[in-house]
Design a protein around this nucleic acid. Structure first.
Lengths: 219, 219
DNA sequence: CATAGGATAATTGTATCCAAAATTTTCCCG
DNA sequence: CGGGAAAATTTTGGATACAATTATCCTATG
């Protein structure tokens, strides 16, 4: 994957990015307390950018922050995850149909390229960021910036569990197949089929994520 | 309205609230630059809570913040407002239908009470906060916290223009009528009618907001 | 022995101060 | 007189220092 991660403009945003990855990677478990001082020392910065990063992650739904009481990795309940998937079905379904009309040979080539890169990714984090890139390229031609931002926002609290569920010998092959079917349907301009495939894709993901969430909830 | 605004736990959140109201009230115009030092002096605090409040408002989509270049009141383009209303139609439509099944005499009484309070509100800001309260009570019984949060988020960048469009002798009466029709349809358990009324309500609001936005865009 | 109360420590929120970047002004040269 | 480079000013981002709040632990008491 040749995506060069451009240097963050500010310390706070760079921190937010690294903390996001750390949470996705399971470095902090749900319910665990993130101490400002500790994070500041670990990354060699002061507490000010740490606070801004934590506020950012709270806004994304990855943390629960209470006044004077610290930030904890959020532990979404099964009903909330279910709800997030219902919202994704609405938003992404709409985006897909709108984007489908705007796709052209160039954007389709890009989509295939991203899918190839995705299947070559070796580690779990690479897989997830590749999946995000694929879907953004899929929905991008719709020209709907707020919906696209919403798509990212609805995924953020969920991806953590997807990463967990991506052990070796899991649903990886079916996932890739569904992506390729999506590309084919979009190339054919078949909105109904494309939307059906996407919905099945999301329903399958929902089941996997709910299972991973339930598993983690036991600890 | 007997809602006592509880004192904010922290300076930053109190500031965010006041700035939000100031922007909704048109105290700052779209594109205008918000200086940290000036706001800090105005409210008698240091720049740290100001920065956190500005970051919060940026997350809510009311401000555009550029690195080392200050925060400006966002000036959403017409297409983005259009997009936000499309999203509201999806999310609020879904919420309404789900809530409709859960409403009971008690929640309906509360809804009527809020509508009465709304019609008694004298100033524009009171009208808007009353409208938010009404819709939250309308959707609340659905038991969908993330969707409700999304509802608030989708309104935030728009309400500013609604306030503008609420001069005397405007659509206020039609607005109230639609609310009462909504209550009646929900009380009757008629999902189809309720959803239709809500969609008309939102479409009418969309037109008003787009007009206000276009008017402001000229300056 | 369990528990309420209070001192103490740990942690967060805010103010003050310094560094980096951007904007404005000034000044020189064409 | 106009244009552009460079210095000065302004403004933001980050570090250090202090105050406010919460959590912990110890003791005294029923």
């Amino acid at each position: 994957m040749l995506v060069t991660r451009l240097a963050a403009a500010t310390t706070a945003s760079a921190l937010a990015q690294r903390l996001r990855e750390a949470i996705d990677a399971g470095q902090w478990r749900p319910g665990e307390l993130l101490r400002q001082e500790q994070i500041a020392a670990e990354y060699g910065v002061s507490r000010i950018p740490v606070r801004e990063a934590l506020a950012q992650l709270q806004n994304e739904g990855l943390l629960d922050v209470a006044h004077y009481r610290g930030a904890r990795v959020s532990r979404p309940r099964a009903e909330e995850i279910d709800e997030l998937f219902d919202l994704r079905l609405m938003v992404e379904g709409d985006l897909l149909v709108r984007a489908l009309r705007q796709h052209d040979p160039r954007s389709l080539r890009e989509l295939k390229r991203l899918q190839d890169a995705l299947e070559d990714a070796e580690d779990r984090l690479g897989w997830i960021s590749g999946d995000i890139a694929f879907h953004e390229a899929l929905y991008g031609p719709a020209g709907r910036p707020r919906s696209l931002a919403l798509f990212r926002q609805l995924r953020a609290p969920i991806d953590r569990f997807s990463v967990q569920a991506l052990g070796p010998g899991t649903r990886k092959q079916g996932w890739a197949d569904e992506h390729r079917q999506l590309i084919a349907a979009v190339a054919a301009g078949d909105a109904i089929t494309a939307r059906t495939i996407l919905e099945d894709h999301l329903q399958a993901t929902r089941a996997v994520v709910l299972a991973a969430c339930a598993e983690q909830g036991e600890s």
